[in-house]
Amino acid sequence: MDDIVVLGAGYAGMATAIQLAARNRGDFRVTLVDAHERFTERLRLPMTATGQQTASLSIPGLLCGTGARFVRGRVTSVDLGARTVVLDHGTITFDLLVYALGSVADASSVTGAADHAYTLNGVAEAARLADRLGSARQVVVGGTGLTGVESAAEIASRFPSLRVTLVGRTAPGMSLNAKAGAYLRGALDRLGVVYEAGEIRNVLADAVVVDDATLPADVFVWAGGTRVPVLAEGIATDARGRMVTDSVLRSVSHPFVYAAGDAAAIRQPYGIMHGTCQSGMPTGVHAAVSIVRSRRGREPRPFRFGYYHTPISLGRDDAVVQFTHGDDTPRRLHLTGRAAVRYKETVTAAPWPTYRRMKRLPASGAFWPKGRRA
């Protein structure tokens, strides 16, 4: 019996493991590996970073009844020749591997950030930031993408006495349509978040150098870029460490390895996908379907994905949701205010009913709409 090992129990890895287990006919074993037993809701890490309580979701609990096995351990390396995963407490062998360990903030890209920056790489890092904010006076958030905007807004709304500055080369909300972008920037203004245009050159213990100016900062939060740790020597990756895949999410250099979520460089007609929850789960499902089809002598189908929205929290009481074309360019339709808050909360909670539905998936593949079965 073959062993299929899934590394990483995030949105993509969890979807892969549950989908594989649901389609298993007793001809392989599924093992899911993660460093923590608690599922990390990356979408809610800005809340954790400001001391707010979020649900404690157990990975073994989410797997209960699926037939998939959970192993807790931190992956230190992958030996592709020996087909073994080295953990901090032992090794696991595999016949097929799914790499879904996700990405982390690339603090190495800015001088001093590795020594002085706070990141939202996980619950522990976010909680460390929450402990520090209570005694801070001036906070600088680097990066005007979704993580930077949500972090700055959450900090400003929870700690109104703090001076919060958001720094980036482009103004926040520039990927939205004109009205949605204006609403986002107006919301940041109302929260007292100051936007500083420029490139961060250096991070000091008590300041941030932006171009030729120095901004005082008790706390610096880095949200300006990500990378994927390369743990499997010799596998084909891009400049950010993401595994380069073919159209069915299989490694172009090692066909017994698949990738899903932020760890994969997946090319679509509009370019390389960027990592989000809305794309992570579909890639995990498709990786599982590709594996099952290949094992049963059927040709895997190419992965196709189109974006459909960009929900952005602006504190707990405000949000903006930009609906998009498949290539992630903005449509005219968008939501703001309480309607956007309700929509985003629904989306944020959506994975759990989906995972439960996957557990009930019969071998025929009824999870998929007609014509897309595995």
Rank of each mutant, 00 (worst) to 15 (best):
A350V: 01
H286V: 05
A9N: 03
G10Q: 02
R185G: 04
L249Y: 09
Y343I: 05
L333A: 14
D206K: 08
G371M: 09
A152T: 13
V252W: 06
A171R: 13
T348F: 10
L162A: 06
A126D: 00
V78L: 06
S56T: 14
L166F: 12
M273L: 15
A213Q: 12
L7A: 09
L133E: 04
V139R: 07
D79E: 13
V141F: 01
R74V: 06
T31I: 10
R342K: 14
A130T: 05
L80Y: 00
H36C: 10
P46F: 00
A259L: 09
V75S: 02
L101C: 11
S56C: 10
A113S: 10
R240L: 14
V5P: 12
L133C: 05
S109G: 09
G280I: 05
E199K: 05
V209F: 04
F159R: 07
Y343F: 15
A264M: 07
G198D: 05
L146I: 14
V141C: 01
T354G: 07
A260Y: 12
V203Q: 04
A12P: 08
C64I: 11
F323Y: 11
Y270T: 07
D327E: 13
I59N: 03
M358D: 12
R338A: 10
V209D: 01
Y270Q: 12
A349F: 08
R240K: 15
T310D: 01
G315A: 11
D318L: 03
A114Y: 02
T348R: 13
L57V: 14
A124K: 13
A12T: 13
L188A: 05
D79K: 03
T66L: 04
Q268V: 12
F28Q: 14
F159C: 01
V167Q: 09
G186H: 06
T84S: 13
P60I: 03
A217N: 00
R304W: 06
P269F: 09
R332L: 15
V203S: 00
L97K: 04
D212N: 15
G65R: 13
L7G: 12
L314W: 08
Y183A: 02
T91E: 12
T237P: 09
H254W: 15
R185I: 04
F70D: 00
R240P: 11
H254Y: 15
G51Q: 03
V252M: 06
R132P: 00
P46G: 04
P60Q: 08
E37K: 06
Y258W: 15
P216M: 07
G181P: 11
G81V: 09
G112N: 04
P311R: 01
G224L: 04
G297Y: 01
R332N: 15
Y258I: 12
Q53F: 07
Y195M: 03
I266N: 08
A82E: 10
F305V: 03
A9D: 00
T111W: 08
L57Y: 01
Y99D: 01
S294Y: 03
D218E: 05
V209M: 03
V244D: 02
I291H: 06
A264F: 06
L204R: 14
P302G: 05
S279K: 09
P46A: 03
G102A: 06
T237I: 08
A21I: 04
P229Q: 03
L191Y: 11
A22K: 05
